[in-house]
Amino acid sequence: MEHYHMNLTLKVWRQKNNKAKGSFETYNVKDISSEMSFLEMFDVLNEQLIHDGKLPIAFDHDCREGICGMCSMHINGEAHGPWKQNTTCQLHMRAFKDGDTIVVEPWRSKAFPVVKDLMVDRSAFDRIIEAGGYISVNTGNAVDANAIPIDKKNADDAFMAAACIGCGACVATCVNSSAMLFVGAKISQLALLPQGGPERESRALNMVTQMDKEGFGNCTNTYACEAQCPKGISVANIARMNKEYIGASFATEEI
């Protein structure tokens, strides 16, 4: 692909802190290489802001290779921008052309309060995992790999669910700010495997209860989350979570 340079207009959400009322600021960046990643373009903009004596834009990032789930921008109306199954750090500037205006917003959800500018607090996800996203294992020597026979399809489905990087694009995209794709994936990856068996009931009950406490909306099966997920997590995982939760709710003897 041909290498080119572009000048862009950026409209970026600036918000001092969680209490402050934010607003959009307009910035111009010049001579951006089509080979840069979107975050590198933001690095250029931040260098420019620092040079001008202004506060740089706060945004989340870590690995910058599409696996950590830390980057989180809502770019031109889409979580992680216009490319399919892609994270913001792996979005390259060749997705844009010279003269484009790009609007960048933080994830919008009551459960993901803005910390500063484009950074949001996603610890709601951590609390959901703490509520039941674990398995019990014996201490001592590591068990041999493949010691327990597992159905190939279940192993594959669990692996596909485990691909979730917990970035929150599902919540950001969902018209209801629902976290059910995330929670569905996290419940599924363990429910499908024998290792997840002992806590199966309590896991579904506790993780869904915690999800409800965090203030996410309710899934209405619009399936926009699946289309926007950088890892292509299937909504079949939401159905599995529903089945696990409904089954556990009717079966449990705990009051």
Binding site: V103, R108, S109, S177, G217
Partner: peptide, 26 residues
């Protein structure tokens, strides 16, 4: 409840067939 789950709305949203319009307007 779903309406309140996003107190600050997006300035830009792209509704390009990611979900059926009637699934969002039940």
């Amino acid at each position: 409840q779903n309406h309140n789950a996003r107190p600050v709305k997006y300035a830009v949203t792209k509704g390009d067939g990611k979900s059926k319009w009637y699934s969002k307007t039940m």
